[in-house]
Simulated assay, not measured.
Amino acid sequence: MLYPWKDEYSVGVSRFDNHHKKLFDIANQLHEMMKSGKGEDVIEPVLRELIDYTKYHLAEEEKTMERIGYSNITSHKRAHVIFTEQLNSAMVEIERGRTTFVVIKVAQTVIDWLIDHIFGIDKKYTAEMNAAGIS
């Protein structure tokens, strides 16, 4: 496993930790497929799953932040928009037939972004979510 989940990545909200773990799992699955030389016909659906699940996770986080009136929601949403735009660009590249290049880029980008986002942004919501009874 190239990108193992570490307890230090926990944001103190089990639902979102589980989402993050699933994203790590999908990215690792992509990496393993590429290492074993799987064809684009096998890799592309997993890449699409990674992108779709990432978008689902970001939307769920935002709904929860809105529900509790999270104080830093504007900048958090901005970070999500920027990342979603990167994912959308990746999908355009896939549709143009550049799957192998995009797989490498997206798998690494999602993990790097997740780790940076978890430590730099997500952990900021832990106290407010826990105070609202979400853990």
Rank of each mutant, 00 (worst) to 15 (best):
residue 56 Y to D: 06
residue 130 N to Y: 04
residue 59 A to R: 14
residue 63 K to E: 13
residue 7 D to Q: 10
residue 124 K to A: 07
residue 131 A to F: 08
residue 107 A to N: 01
residue 40 E to L: 07
residue 67 R to W: 03
residue 81 V to T: 13
residue 50 L to I: 05
residue 23 L to R: 03
residue 4 P to N: 08
residue 127 A to I: 14
residue 132 A to H: 09
residue 16 F to R: 03
residue 25 D to Y: 04
residue 109 T to V: 11
residue 132 A to P: 01
residue 75 S to V: 10
residue 74 T to H: 08
residue 95 E to C: 03
residue 34 M to Q: 12
residue 82 I to H: 06
residue 105 K to E: 12
residue 10 S to N: 05
residue 52 D to L: 11
residue 33 M to D: 01
residue 100 T to G: 13
residue 46 V to I: 11
residue 118 I to S: 01
residue 88 N to L: 14
residue 112 D to N: 12
residue 101 F to H: 14
residue 65 M to P: 00
residue 17 D to K: 10
residue 16 F to Q: 00
residue 61 E to W: 00
residue 27 A to C: 07
residue 8 E to I: 11
residue 105 K to W: 06
residue 119 F to R: 09
residue 37 G to M: 07
residue 48 R to D: 11
residue 103 V to A: 14
residue 88 N to A: 15
residue 16 F to W: 04
residue 101 F to W: 10
residue 77 K to F: 10
residue 103 V to Y: 04
residue 32 E to I: 05
residue 20 H to L: 15
residue 115 I to L: 06
residue 104 I to Y: 12
residue 36 S to Y: 09
residue 25 D to E: 12
residue 118 I to K: 05
residue 75 S to Q: 07
residue 34 M to N: 03
residue 120 G to Y: 14
residue 38 K to V: 02
residue 117 H to E: 02
residue 73 I to D: 02
residue 97 G to E: 13
residue 51 I to F: 03
residue 14 S to P: 02
residue 122 D to M: 06
residue 71 S to I: 14
residue 101 F to K: 15
residue 125 Y to F: 15
residue 2 L to M: 15
residue 75 S to L: 07
residue 113 W to L: 07
residue 52 D to Y: 10
residue 85 E to Y: 05
residue 90 A to I: 02
residue 1 M to F: 04
residue 130 N to M: 07
residue 77 K to D: 04
residue 10 S to W: 08
residue 12 G to Q: 09
residue 112 D to G: 10
residue 122 D to H: 09
residue 107 A to H: 08
residue 23 L to K: 04
residue 79 A to Q: 15
residue 65 M to T: 09
residue 71 S to C: 12
residue 19 H to P: 02
residue 47 L to R: 01
residue 10 S to G: 02
residue 115 I to A: 03
residue 99 T to A: 13
residue 3 Y to G: 00
residue 76 H to F: 06
residue 97 G to S: 12
residue 5 W to F: 15
